[in-house]
Design a protein around this nucleic acid. Structure first.
Lengths: 145, 145
DNA sequence: AAATAAATTATAAGAATTATAATGTAAGAA
DNA sequence: TTCTTACATTATAATTCTTATAATTTATTT
């Protein structure tokens, strides 16, 4: 299933002027296989053995390209590294305030919030993002000791 | 009204070990008066004339303190500067993808999302954050030309 | 197979934020 | 009020994430 989505992403890219290079494919593959929310540096390190000469800039460049094409989203966290998330079905993130773990959960898109925001502010709204913060089970257990 | 909230914030700080300094008060005052979402640097520049010797570190230090006490929230935007928002009533933000303008809109807190996230992930959830993205009226008009 | 447009690499630069150490100051105690 | 001390501020340097640049390489088109 991750493979199908990867294929879809590759096809989406072929429709644009974006060329398929080994590095680019590997980054995409890593994003879809890991199903996590890696930072640029995590991706870079993960592919180091396969591409010993790859530059960090390549990772950043490609992530920007993927964002522009709309197949990944960037999750920003202040001065710490951004994380990158494949765009799949409607989901949001729960983030542990202690350890930073990110877990997906599915929830229907909040269309009514978008609509209200449009009416109230006059913006032409096209998307939204939500993060829920709390303490993960692991960190809850630790604090009990 | 901004004044009352400022007073409340000052009182909240007095209950902790946090001392009230002129710089600290000025930063708080700016946050509550401006009712915008300034960056650390904007605050720094705004208070430059009043405190010619103030250090940027002071602004950052205080914003961190305010966050810890829970009177401001940090809004993060990748590698560009964070913005800081006074915690007042339940509201979310609409952000213009073209010019970056941020506008508040009120909406009841999405408690049901938090509850669902708790059940599904086992996290102990305590807050959430949502941003809606679109194009502001100004930028919509420009693109029509 | 040659041409060209795009991608990669290596490196340097930029910007936001934090750490450090010395100095200054708020607030409670004497 | 003055003294004390723990907390704040300042100035500067360091760190970290990300982007820009220029030279080289490579994918696609002709």
């Amino acid at each position: 299933m991750a493979n199908e989505q990867l294929q879809e992403a590759v096809n989406a890219l072929k429709k644009t002027k974006v060329r398929m290079t080994p590095q680019r494919h590997a980054i995409l593959e890593y994003l879809y296989d890991s199903m996590s929310h890696p930072t640029a540096d995590e991706i870079y390190k993960a592919l180091e053995s396969k591409f010993p000469n790859m530059s960090v800039a390549t990772v950043y460049n490609n992530l920007r390209v993927f964002k522009e094409v709309g197949i990944v989203k960037e999750l920003t966290y202040g001065d710490s590294s951004s994380r990158f998330d494949c765009v799949t079905t409607d989901h949001y993130h729960v983030i542990c305030s202690q350890c930073g773990k990110i877990v997906d959960f599915h929830y229907p898109g909040l269309d009514e919030v978008e609509t209200l925001a449009e009416h109230v502010t006059g913006f032409k709204v096209n998307s939204h993002r939500m993060e829920v913060y709390g303490t993960c089970p692991d960190c809850s257990n630790i604090s009990k000791h």
